[in-house]
């Protein structure tokens, strides 16, 4: 018998005795009765988010400030170009990495810098030497200040995590309310053919492993900038 069948066999054998449902036990903190069916709507318990775009944008901005994400609402392409150029100038970017996409194409044309495209196979050390990685995304989540992206929407796995500065370009209608909405959007967009990697990025890379003191840029980007147009 294969190991798979043995393990499954042991599981089935073990499950012949039923375990009490949580909440039906006595004791402190256990007094809430179990629901009839497994709960699927978490909205009423997760952190509250307002309905209008302005409320969502305000919450995303507040979360970004806490996470040390640089979040900027831009009105149009001209403003985006100005801000990107200012950023490139301030940090002295010499080379950027990006992927093909409507907004990214605009961005690298606007910047006029040498560029590495990760659309096809690329050289790893070349990507590592880039000053910034510019990507699009699938969604922004107001509730947590997160960026949702996948290998398909953001030029693979490494582009958004290897360069020291990750710049995200998003549309206004990508700014979603909460986490359930984000997962629904992923399901809706990719359905039965999911990309091999999907990620929620919440702020620049961080660690607190030394005396619980926050340090940014542990392994991933030290900076995260989100432009929402």
């Amino acid at each position: 018998m294969s190991e798979r069948e043995q393990i499954l066999g042991r599981i089935r054998e073990a499950l012949r005795v039923a375990a009490p449902k949580p909440g039906l036990l006595s004791g402190p903190g256990q007094r809430v009765p179990a629901h009839e069916k497994r709960p699927t709507d978490f909205k009423p318990w997760l952190p509250a988010v307002g309905d209008s775009f302005d409320e969502r944008a305000a919450l995303f901005a507040k979360n970004s400030a806490e996470l040390k994400t640089d979040f900027q609402l831009v009105a149009n392409r001209n403003e985006l170009q100005d801000k990107l150029l200012a950023l490139a100038h301030a940090e002295g970017w010499k080379k950027i990495a990006t992927h093909a996409g409507e907004m990214t194409n605009f961005a690298f044309a606007a910047l006029g810098l040498p560029v590495l495209q990760t659309g096809a196979r690329y050289n790893l050390s070349e990507l590592e030497s880039c000053d910034a990685g510019i990507t699009e995304c699938d969604a922004l989540v107001a509730q947590t200040g997160s960026v949702v992206l996948t290998t398909r929407s953001a030029g693979g796995r490494a582009l958004s995590v290897l360069p020291p500065h990750h710049v995200v370009l998003a549309h206004r209608d990508q700014l979603l309310r909460d986490l359930p909405a984000a997962f629904a959007a992923l399901k809706n967009c990719y359905g039965s053919n999911y990309p091999s990697m999907m990620c929620l990025i919440t702020g620049p890379s961080r660690t607190g492993d030394i005396e619980r003191i926050l340090v940014l840029g542990a392994h991933g980007p030290k900076k995260l900038t989100v432009f929402c147009m």
Partner: peptide, 9 residues
């Protein structure tokens, strides 16, 4: 509120 990288593979 959420860890920095939540990755689905």
């Amino acid at each position: 509120m959420l860890s920095c990288y939540n990755t689905l593979i």
